[in-house]
Design a protein around this nucleic acid. Structure first.
Lengths: 348, 348
DNA sequence: CTGAAAGCGCTTACAG
DNA sequence: CTGAAAGCGCTTACAG
């Protein structure tokens, strides 16, 4: 069988004895067609197993079914969870999702937008926080503006400073503040934070929120009790190790993401520290499985799938004004066994 | 700014004062072009921020950059891990990955293939086991044959009975057999299996392999000590609960996937059983985080990212013969603290 | 080395 | 209701 044996609209038309225009109308239900022709077209299309060439359709219609989804790392349960929601929504709307995973490379993120512009994606979803980097914001902003100028829609999940796009915003700051308050209510007074890269807005927001919450109780976070690490398990492990090296002067630790918290837990254990007996530990996100850790992790639960669904829904719904739309998604503090009142000694 | 203000090849040609053909040649490096024209074209393309319409290219070239990737559930760390590898490879080769997540719906899997055929995807990756279902195999086989007949390449990860496609095959059967042997060596004689849906080849293979391994030691698996559950955490929980209800006559449990094992662990704990003191527990896959459970999980480690990379590589490399190619990927038994010699009593 | 022209597979005014 | 024709934005023989 030859490689170019694709069945075309033309083939269906010939088989059915009608014009290509008629086939198109029947298949797209775009105009009334006499019943018998309709039948013949449908029969021919079925028997030839005809599938329209979506590229030809995109070209002729000047609009495609493609939606671009860009995330930092598809292997991270946080992104996988959100994209799960995106996929649910996409399949309900018969959209073609093109996936981009940047692996933290800012350049690649911009390149993906260009690629999706080339695909004439009807919408682009930016999943995951932006970078606090002026040059990147400049370049990314230009690239997105070009895309938007040609009718594209962009929805971001998490805050992207410097980019004027619609957004679904997990309330990182208030979530972290509430978590801090809950920990203060448990009796803690000395805290340390295992934070993410300062260049990520999500990391910055969570740290700021945690500070807010403590401040309201008159508690300050000492600079040497904040350690940065990569937004993953090993980043948490490394940051916790560094914190211990500096001298752990806290009864409660806040890891900026659950994934980091898992690494922190391992590091604490390897240093002979028990959670929560020696020190309490909290995370953020509530990814699957952290409820199955020992002890189960106290965290701020974000409805990840819901976030994905809403981002996709927002991108599909054209705005009525030119103002950027924003939907806030609250996190919910979930207290589990990884946190407890501080030990009587006050310090491990 | 009007919506149809996309910059076209034609615009670049006019700006540069050359023909569209020349622009195409310069941009694609597809023929020598006089240096000065070349410069002008490049300058014009840059200043207009021109990005070729990939649909028009796909149409004119009769081949696209699209690769379709279909998995059962993008939210499952097993698939997310494999797809992570796929994305790495894809970005190195400038491919556009279209993602499909079936959520276990067989129909939808077939529909995705059709959609990707419509996109003229140059390859389709089927990630995740096939179904032991004659009707599905029939329909899926037809759909894939149509795709292959038009020059498409299909690579499956895991066994797909009834489909003649290239495949990367995690050695589920031998991996499970080796795991069984390792457990026998630890001293276990009484086993139970929390298996996945019998309709999934992966579940069937792992169960069969575990039986193989036991058989070699002259040990049989009693039918009532095999319980099926969904391939996820809650499936493991439910299956373990059922097993306990039936009477746990085993000192070692094998959950068909790590995700199930997490649920099993929770169920055991809720029934006051300790791992590994009362009963040993093993999984399969070695997804991230199971090494951080308490106790860390003994499992059969599969190099997930590597599997994804190889599947993509195989799809890109045209076969020299018409015979289907197969690459086997060995799992490696990783002993962790969730397994130990059986308790002296022999039974919990 | 360069351009005019045909063609990729659709859709959609435009006539009838 | 139906068809012939133009057009979507590229690429690529074909001439020159």
């Amino acid at each position: 069988m030859s490689e170019r044996s694709l069945v075309t609209l033309e083939d269906v038309a010939q088989a059915a004895g009608v014009s290509p225009a008629t086939v198109s109308r029947v298949l797209n239900n775009t105009a009334a067609v006499r019943a018998d022709m309709r039948e013949r077209v449908l029969a021919a299309a079925t028997s030839l197993a005809y599938t329209p060439n979506s590229h030809a359709q995109a070209l002729a219609r000047a609009t495609s079914q493609v939606v671009g989804v860009i995330c930092h790392d598809i292997g991270d349960p946080y992104f996988a969870g959100i994209i799960r929601g995106v996929m649910r929504m996409a399949s309900e709307h018969d959209l073609h999702v093109t996936l981009g995973s940047t692996f933290g490379d800012q350049e690649r993120e911009i390149a993906y937008v260009g690629m999706m512009r080339g695909q004439r994606a009807r919408a682009i979803l930016l999943i995951g926080s932006g970078f606090e980097d002026a040059a990147w914001q400049e370049a990314m902003g230009r690239e997105l503006d070009r895309y938007v100028a040609t009718g594209g829609r962009v929805t971001a999940v998490s805050r992207h400073r410097g980019l004027h796009v619609d957004a679904v915003l997990p309330q990182n700051r208030t979530g972290a503040a509430e978590l801090a308050r809950a920990m203060v209510e448990l009796g803690h007074r000395e805290f340390a934070v295992l934070s993410g890269p300062a260049t990520l807005t999500t990391a910055a927001d969570r740290l700021a929120g945690f500070r807010d919450g403590l401040a309201r109780a008159g508690i300050e976070l000492r600079p040497d009790q904040v350690v940065e690490g990569a937004f993953n398990r090993d980043g948490g492990y490394a940051a916790a190790t560094e914190l211990i090296r500096r001298g752990l002067r806290a009864t409660c630790l806040f890891a900026a993401t659950d994934l980091m918290a898992v690494g922190v837990l391992a590091a604490l254990r390897n240093h002979g520290l028990s959670v929560p007996d020696d020190v309490s530990l909290t995370g953020f996100d509530d990814i699957p499985l952290v409820q199955d850790l020992t002890p189960p992790l106290t965290t701020v639960a974000l409805p990840l799938e819901e976030v994905g669904r809403r981002a996709m829904a927002m991108a599909l719904r054209r705005g009525t004004t030119t103002r950027n739309r924003v939907e806030r998604v609250q996190g919910r503090v979930v207290l589990r066994a990884s946190t407890a009142p501080p030990p009587p000694s006050g310090r491990p």
